[in-house]
């Protein structure tokens, strides 16, 4: 691998010139988002410096346990964010957290235990970020569909219950629909990977000096693990959410 060339701090400061150009465009077009843009620029800088410092500390002092701790924190945050998508679904944040933990956690562990990725903090943290991000999106989409089913699908669910179907059977068409919706984005992006966008992991490796044929090996693993994590997370989230929808007598809760 050749030496990686990264921007120096003066280089980073110089990139502010580009921000000034953006601000000039915004001012000239009278878009009235100058303030928002400045806040976004400052916020991005502060957030990234903070995350960089935390990651440095983890890599240096906390090692692999620290990396998994960081991943656990990501799961909790992802569960809160995805759970919000399930507005009217009881305990939707718990369902999303369990779903992301099960789907993302098992995928990450499988990659480490099978030796597909190195068991090092500097590898586990970014890979966990990708996996948990994908799991969060899938769980959130699934919960949104479960919420829709609860509102628009109530008469259909009850019609099935009237026929003696169990709660699980009565909800099965909605479970399928939720999984389908949750998986479409990741299936689509898997189909077109490399054709429309050069994905993040591959871009990062190429920027870091890895040759493209090596970089794609990583990307293939990333795509497949994202599929697995999304499918598992959406499935577990939907099933946990579903159990909270019905009571023990196979009735929708009020």
């Amino acid at each position: 691998m050749s030496a990686v060339h990264v921007p120096s701090w003066p280089g980073v400061a110089a990139s502010l010139v580009l921000v000034a150009v953006a601000l000039a465009v915004v001012a000239r077009a009278r878009l009235r988002i100058t303030r928002e843009l400045v806040v976004a620029v400052v916020r991005a800088g502060v957030q990234l410096v903070a995350v960089g410092a935390v990651l440095l500390a983890i890599f240096k002092y906390a090692g692999l346990p620290g990396a998994f701790g960081w991943a656990a924190l990501m799961v909790v945050i992802a569960g809160q964010v995805a759970g919000r998508r399930g507005g009217g679904v009881a305990r939707s944040r718990m369902a999303a957290t369990i779903g992301v933990a099960a789907g993302g956690g098992s995928t990450l562990l499988a990659l480490v235990l099978l030796g597909v990725i190195a068991a090092q903090a500097r590898v586990v943290v970014p890979v966990a970020g990708m996996i948990i991000g994908g799991s969060m999106q899938a769980s959130g989409l699934a919960l949104r569909r479960v919420d829709d089913a609860l509102h628009a699908g109530r008469p259909a669910i009850e019609a099935r219950l009237f026929l003696g179907l169990s709660a699980r059977e009565a909800f099965a068409p909605h479970t399928r629909d939720a999984l389908h919706t949750a998986l479409l984005p990741v299936v689509d992006s898997t189909k077109v990977v490399g054709l429309i966008t050069l994905p993040g992991a591959m871009t990062g490796l190429i920027l870091g000096g890895v040759d493209p044929l090596t970089a794609i090996r990583y990307q293939i693993v990333v795509m497949y693990m994202m599929l697995a994590a999304a499918a598992l997370s959406a499935y577990v989230t939907t099933r946990v959410a579903e159990t909270a929808l019905f009571d023990e007598a196979h009735r929708l809760r009020e």
Binding site: P155, A156, R160, F162, L163, G164, A249
Partner: peptide, 19 residues
């Protein structure tokens, strides 16, 4: 058994819902 009960006691709702 509640599922058995619902098979023995059928209910037709006011508004038809087709599945």
């Amino acid at each position: 058994d509640v599922l058995d009960l619902r098979r023995r006691v059928g209910l037709v709702a006011q508004r038809p819902t087709l599945l």
